[in-house]
Design a protein around this nucleic acid. Sequence first.
DNA 1: GTTTTTGCAAAAGATTTGCAGCCAA
DNA 2: TTGGCTGCAAATCTTTTGCAAAAAC
Lengths: 149, 149
Amino acid sequence: MTQEAIERVRSSLGRSRLRWSPQREQIVLAFLKQDHITIRSLYGFLNRNGRRTPLNTIYRTMRVLCENGFAQARRFGEETQYDNISTKGDHDHLICTGCGHIVEFEDPAIEELRQQVALANGFHLTGRNLELYGLCAGCRSYPVPPAMA
Amino acid sequence: MTQEAIERVRSSLGRSRLRWSPQREQIVLAFLKQDHITIRSLYGFLNRNGRRTPLNTIYRTMRVLCENGFAQARRFGEETQYDNISTKGDHDHLICTGCGHIVEFEDPAIEELRQQVALANGFHLTGRNLELYGLCAGCRSYPVPPAMA
DNA sequence: GTTTTTGCAAAAGATTTGCAGCCAA
DNA sequence: TTGGCTGCAAATCTTTTGCAAAAAC
């Protein structure tokens, strides 16, 4: 099924007369396995397994994926995270500040309220970003030492 | 009343055995007049009116203000915005992608739902960040040319 | 063949840090 | 007097860009 997902990206790019290369395939392959990933971790992964891929190629490819609706960039704190949105709708994030674990969630009631707030202020909503920070159950019981997080 | 606000910051820093300087006063003064401000605009302002203040001094002072509960840093897109939270509770933002205008809002119902989501996932909530992006009424009627935004 | 992508190096932009001298408490 | 603050310059980090060679279609 990963093969199928790859194929979807490939043909979508093709329709925009963008090209497919081994580097691009490696990056997309790695990206599609994750729910969210950073440039840094992609870089680490790609240069550990497989061919050497410089940072700027990764940046460029991720930008292409964003422009074509497969990825969405967002900043969690310091790092820019790339969200895999090819198979998911809009969603929000719950982030554990202890271990870094991220839980995705969708809440129609919150979405409804967002629309109301926008409307009340005369805005036409085009994007939203909700991040909730806290400690997950595990971290409250067994705090992760910062060095290991 | 600005004088009073300044005094509050000053004595709070004093209690943490941090010092007060003319530069710090200028920065705090400029910051307290705003709801949110960027380093860049503070820099522009301070070096237009008043004494010369280098960027690193502004960064350092804003960090001190964050650490002492007067400011809160958050990234809206590219720029880090410093929120004046000394006189306000937690709040969220509605951001016009046309003109850059920012509206603050508080919505108890959304807050309630956030708590529920956190609870349902076993998280103890410590922070939240909700940004809604869209076009304000003015920008839908009279779009602002990017160059002027 | 033409156009896009790659990879290197360099640039750009934001933020931080080292350090000597200055200044507030 | 002492330890924090300033200001300069340099370092760091992330992301972008110029460009010639290589690859894709």
